[in-house]
Nucleic acid binder design. Structure first.
Lengths: 145, 145
DNA sequence: TAACAATAATTAACATGTTAAGGAAATGAT
DNA sequence: ATCATTTCCTTAACATGTTAATTATTGTTA
């Protein structure tokens, strides 16, 4: 049975891109007022959720490649939203922690962000929404949570 | 009812990124041998599916922003994989068409690409796969096909 | 038709994605 | 202890994502 490529309208990679674009549009709009990017927001959210983290773990949990995190961390540090501390026990490693200023950005927008998420949940229906998250997780090869 | 942000492990934007990463990894691996990028592959696939297109339509169907398409088209032209033709009726517009060399890249890899897609379809199950595509389409604000 | 508005495309500027190479510190083997 | 290896992180180089400004052409209207 020779398989052929689906039409691009039913292509999984393209559907993932478009869905992400649809979901991120209102979030980006919200973030525009804060002067931080979507990825910077993601880093701050992970730091809020897990507390101080080493750079490697932070990159994993933020779904960022290490080189991206290096640049983003430098930007966030310059903005005073995080601090970077060398690990005395292993001087290769680095700890990253959110500052009160960074925390404030999350706190100030958390409700608004949650409302955007709720909007999509309503649009799909709660059950479909959970199904979608479950199916997406199956496509993620990452460490089995 | 005050809504709060979900933990990042159940965040829709992050789940979309990770899923995309999981799906694209083997495709990128395949494309590495061809010397073209994922986006360039997408443009060539759309051109194969729809034939000659004006740049605006091509950008839409490839899910690319216009500035990205401008650069990608220049690259593909330099590689001899597409041709660009000015519209005589409206000299602002431009038509883009795939060349035999470009077509060959698609033809040579179509089966392999389809097998990768089939792998994900099996992993999820055919029914779940279609459900996933349907749900993703609901998140796409784009023109209702 | 002259002035203004709208459209197609490019360019610019900055941030991120991606792969490869490099540097510093820790680990392991001899 | 020394050398090779591994690990954490940075830097480099190039492609793309994103928004804004700019150019060229077309359309509209007074």
């Amino acid at each position: 049975m020779t398989s052929t490529l689906p039409p691009t309208k039913r292509s999984l990679p393209i559907a993932l891109i478009r869905a992400r674009e649809g979901v991120m549009a209102p979030i980006r709009e919200m973030l525009a007022e804060t002067g931080i990017t979507e990825q910077q927001w993601r880093v701050l959210r992970v730091l809020t959720e897990y507390g101080r983290l080493d750079a490697k773990t932070l990159a994993d949990r933020s779904s960022l490649l290490f080189p991206s995190l290096t640049r983003i961390a430098a930007t966030l540090r310059d903005k005073g939203l995080i601090t970077q501390t060398r690990d005395d026990a292993d001087r290769r490693r680095q700890f990253i922690e959110i500052t009160p200023e960074g925390q404030k950005i999350i706190d100030d927008r958390a409700t608004q962000a949650a409302q955007i998420v709720d909007g999509f949940k309503s649009a799909l229906g709660a059950e479909n929404y959970e199904t979608l998250l479950d199916l997406l997780t199956l496509l993620d090869p990452g460490p089995a949570d």
